[in-house]
Every structure is written in structure tokens, then in C-alpha cells.
Nucleic acid binder design. Structure first.
Lengths: 340, 340
DNA sequence: CTGAAAGCGCTTACAG
DNA sequence: CTGAAAGCGCTTACAG
């Protein structure tokens, strides 16, 4: 028995007694083909188990029906849900998702961009606005269709579908200040290559600074991992003049901080308030439930997909979209302790 | 200014004063090309900003360097981490990941399989062993290289890289029984199209049945969402003869159950023990920390990628891999209440 | 409605 | 080390 390689359009044509052109039409534009021919073709396809060859079609039509997403990590629930929504919209449009992760490394981002583009991606979803100059140049010179998400900025020619991290964090910090907290600690994400983390941190600092009598007790950076948040929190709480509130770069960090606080026998929020960012599933499950900033991930993923599809299709007059976040007050935020 | 379409191999060849064959060699097997020619070619590539056309290359070589993963959802932390690891291994091997989700719908799985295959995936990662007969036939007749993960079965010709859900859940249930619990409730995942959920449920029931004096108080199915777990738990706890322990299909369900128990003023584990499955990040963050079954997701993702790459490469004598799970005892499991 | 034929951009024996 | 040329499997004007 010989190994039968995949059947081609040609095989179908022969089997159905028509030309390859007709088979191709039957596949892509059935109305252009007579009923009789169509029936024979359908039958031949079924019998042969024919599937179109992707490369050949891509070469002939010069389009791949493929789009790429390059994200820091899939491990964060934050991105996972957004990408899930992103993918669903693509699937509805018959577009396939290529995915790659960078681990927050800009060099890696450039590498993955090149890789996905050479794999035929006709457009790209990128996260955040921190990237190599070389990457910007690459994107610009090839006019790579792309949409940037998880952040939003005005007055650029970039297409953003996201939210204003700075504004959201500033607002959240003001809510904390409104509870009377004067000494506040900040556990920021790794800011080096992460503009969202930086914006959140800077906003918190700015808001606190602008409140006459409040002060930033300490700012620590930690990677987005529970244990890192825990460790950072332990460090902050070991200081003499302990803060009464902790503002964290995201929910994962805040969850770690809550563990640390508890292990030091501090009551949340009686002894210390802790707030996160993102409102991932975990936030409402911990106890007390976590005060955080809700990011419209699903909506963002869907909107980004829709826009990217439009960009790829070359629609004119496209603009980005700024989505709203929402401060979610739950049990982990309380008034400043009386004794203070 | 005319819109310059992407430069081709041909353009590079002309610009470098060589034939396309030589440029192609310089790209794929540089040693076969003289230094001088190589230099001119590299220069031309840089100046022109040339990127190989994916479709053409795929057509000519009959390989795509692309692999697909079709998973129920990206929203569950469970899959996200495993897929992340899977993707990293692929990236190291220069292979790109196509991703699609099914929402636990078998019809959708088949659709996505066809879609990714027609997009040129040279192999597939599939989750679990529940699927349409039609899907099995499709996979078999085309000899689609694929690896099945998140479950493991002996004595098939299928390639599994996963763990034994039944054994793991059976073991976990025995640990619960060993604490003296007699009345046990089960909140299973949706079992209809999910063999892992079914195996976990059946194992729990079997283990309880085999314990002389223990009984299954109730079995409820719920989709893997926190609110669904919460609701299911409320329902179970509303019965007169309330269970002293709750075995949940996964951590998400267990987290919901913990919220419900707390809202009914039941202390965990003093009044009721709750255990989950998967050991996602959330499990160690809730309080009390959740007793669960740790699944080696990272390792599983990596192993699945390695195996799939081998399968695609046509390596002989390949076999699946059964990974071990580990029962993680944390605060949410306690002895049966005294008063009982 | 249908077919013959050119062309998409690469790779790869085959010759030299 | 290098080039001419065929071929990969489709699509799509062009003609009929």
C-alpha cells in the first residue's frame, strides 16, 4: 500500500470530470457553478477527503486569513480572557489566530513579530506601548497593520483599543485617600519594560503627592506573581512606620500582599487596606473580597479584534477606542485605622 | 509615490546580481553560498526589507512550521499556563502556534480542527478524549498528527500526555474519607462533553461507595464558573442532611463553594470541608487555603509540545506520557465536625 | 456555466 | 559555488 499524499484540487477535478477552475469556483463561489457540476464536485471532495492546501491558496490570493497576537504571557488571567474574546471574534470572521508570548521582553517581542509576520499574519495585536525603536521602525516601514491594546493614548497615529492606566490608577488612589489614609505603600509591577505598570505606579504616586498630608511610605517593584507580591508586602510591613494602605500593581500582587498581611496577623482592612488592579476572578474570591479596578477585558478583546479586522481590510477613517474602567470597592479597603 | 508591494526573492536576486536559487540558498543553507554573494544578498535583504512569503515557501517545501492547539477555553487558568508552556517549547523550535477554542462544544471542536488543518497546521494538540465519531474518523483517515493532553489512558494507539483524572480524584476522595467524613457532596463540572469532569465525578462517587459507611449526599453539575459553584453549593447546603465535605470538579467551582459556605456562616473546615482540583493560583490565595490536586500543567504543556514535534517529524516508536498529580492538603480540608 | 493557461513566490534536483 | 528551469497547488482574468 502506497502512502497516499493529500489529494489536490486536480484530483478532485479529474474525479468529478471538470476543470480545476470549476472546482475552485465551486469552493469559493458556488453560485458560479452549475448544479450538476457542483454535485459531482461535492461528491468527489467527500470521497477523496480533500482539503485545500493553505500555502497554495495563500500564494494565489495573497491573503492568509490569519492574524497574530503577541502578548506578555498567557499565564495571567488578565490576558487569557481578553485573548479568548479576541479569538472568538476572529473565529466568527473565519480568521485564525497565531499566538506568541514575549515574557515581557522587548527583544523577544520583535522576534515574535517577525516570526508571525513571516508566518503570514495579515495583522497583529500588540500589548502596551513599550517597545524597541527597532520594532517601531519595523512596523512602520512595512506598514504592518496592527492594533495596540491594554492601554490608551491620545494624539498619536497609533490605533489603541484599551484604557487609560494612569487615569484609572489615579482615580483608585484618590478613593483610598478619601478613606483617610495618610501613609500609603505601593507594590508596583516590574516597570522596566511595562508601560502599564509604570503608569499605574506613577499615577498612584502623583495622586498621593497631590494630597497635602499624605505620603508614599515605600515603592517596591515586583514581578506579577503571588509569591513576589507576598515578599514585597512582607518587606514593606517590616518597616517601623508601616503604611495603612497598600496599592498594588495588579490583583496577583495584591493577593500575595493579602497573604503576607494575614501571616503577620494583620487584619484586612482593620489594620491595613489592600487594593489591586484588573479584577480577575480571584479578586472576588479572596477574603475579604478585594477592592480593585475592573478592566473590561472581554469587551476590549472583542473591540480589538473588530478593529484589527477592519484595519487589515483597509477600511478608511478608523479610530481607536478608549474603554472605561471601574473602581470596584470591596472589603479589602477600609477607613484608616482609628489608632492612627 | 506608488504603493510598493512586498519585495520578493526575485527583487533581492536582481538587487544582489545573483539568481533566485542563490538567494534561496543563502537564506536556507548559507554554507552553500560564497562569501561575496552572501554579503551582497544580506545587504539587499536589509535595504529592501525583504521577508520570505510564507505561502510560497509552504507550497514549495510542503511544510508550514505551524502547529495548532484546540482547547476548551483560554479563560481557565488551568489551560492558560499549560498552553503558555506548550507555546514556549514550540517557539524554541521555531514553530508557530495556531490557537482555537471550542467552548466545550464537540461540533465546534471539529470545525476548529478542520479550520486549523486547512490553515496548514502540521500537527494538533487536543484536550481530553471526548469527541465526535466524525472527528475521530477525520483524524484517522487523514492521519492527522496529534497529541491528546489533560488526560491519560492506557492501551490505545492514541498519544496521550496527561494524567489520570480518575485515579487522582479517587485518591483525593480517599483522603477526604480518611478524615472521617461520612456525608459527602459532589459539585462536578459539566460532564456531558467533558471526560475529565466525568472521570473526576465518577471516581469520587466510586471511592465513597466503596467506603462502607459513607454516602454521597448529592451530586450537582455546574459549569466551571465561580458563580455556578457558589449556586451549586448553596443548593447542596440548603438540604436538611447537609454534607460535611464537598468535593469539587475544579478549583473554580471550589472557590465558588467557599464563598457560598461563608455567606451561610459556615466555617471552613470546622463546619464543612471543601476540596478542589487543579491547584491554580487562586487555590493558595483563598482563606483558608484550598486543598486540591496539583496538576503538572507546565510540565504537561512542555511534554506535549515535545511529543507533538516528534510526531510531526515522523519519529518512530513514540509513546505518550503519564504524569503524576499530587494531593495538596491545605486548610480547607479538616476532620469531620465533632458534633456529627 | 466552463475551460485553458498564466501566475502567485518560493525550493530543489540537475548541470556545470 | 552558481544558474536555468520545473514544479508545488491554488486562483482568476480571458474567451467562449
Amino acid at each position: 500500500m502506497s502512502i497516499k499524499t493529500h489529494p489536490t484540487l486536480q484530483d478532485v477535478a479529474v474525479s468529478a470530470g471538470v476543470s480545476t477552475a470549476t472546482v475552485s469556483r465551486a469552493l469559493n463561489d458556488p453560485d458560479k457553478v452549475g448544479q450538476a457540476a457542483r454535485d459531482r464536485i461535492d461528491h468527489a471532495i467527500a470521497v477523496l477527503g480533500y482539503t485545500p492546501n493553505f500555502g497554495a491558496r495563500a500564494l494565489a490570493t495573497n491573503q492568509t486569513n490569519t492574524v497574530g497576537a503577541i502578548i506578555p504571557t498567557l499565564s495571567n488571567a488578565m490576558f487569557a480572557s481578553g485573548i479568548q474574546a479576541f479569538q472568538e471574534v476572529l473565529a466568527e470572521a473565519g480568521v485564525t489566530l497565531l499566538i506568541a508570548t514575549t515574557g515581557y521582553d522587548p527583544e523577544n517581542e520583535l522576534r515574535q513579530i517577525k516570526s508571525l509576520m513571516s508566518q503570514g499574519a495579515s495583522g497583529l495585536l500588540l500589548i502596551g506601548n513599550d517597545r524597541l525603536d527597532e520594532t517601531r521602525k519595523y512596523l512602520a516601514t512595512r506598514r504592518t497593520p496592527h492594533v495596540i491594546s491594554w492601554c490608551f493614548h491620545d494624539g498619536t497615529d497609533q490605533m489603541f483599543v484599551g484604557f487609560d492606566n494612569y487615569a484609572a490608577a489615579y482615580d483608585a488612589t484618590q478613593r483610598v485617600l478619601a478613606k483617610g489614609h495618610k501613609r500609603i505603600g505601593i507594590i508596583a509591577g516590574d516597570c522596566a519594560t511595562n508601560d502599564r505598570a509604570r503608569a499605574r505606579r506613577d499615577a498612584a504616586i502623583a495622586a498621593i503627592d497631590s494630597a497635602a498630608d499624605a505620603q508614599v511610605v515605600q515603592v517596591i517593584q515586583a514581578p506579577y506573581r503571588i509569591d513576589a507580591g507576598r515578599q514585597a508586602c512582607e518587606e514593606i510591613l517590616s518597616f517601623a512606620n508601616r503604611p495603612t494602605a497598600l496599592i498594588c500593581g495588579n490583583d496577583v500582587l495584591a493577593a500575595g500582599a493579602m497573604i503576607a498581611a494575614r501571616s503577620l496577623n494583620l487584619k484586612i482592612p482593620d489594620d491595613i487596606s489592600i487594593i489591586g488592579f484588573d479584577d480577575i476572578g480571584l479578586a472576588s474570591v479572596v477574603s475579604p473580597p478585594m477592592t480593585t479596578v475592573q478592566v473590561p477585558q472581554i469587551e476590549m478583546g472583542r473591540a480589538a479584534a473588530t478593529l484589527l479586522l477592519d484595519v487589515v481590510a483597509g477600511k478608511p477613517d478608523l479610530t481607536g477606542e478608549r474603554l472605561d474602567t471601574q473602581f470596584i470597592e470591596r472589603g479589602s479597603l477600609g477607613p484608616v485605622p482609628e489608632k492612627d
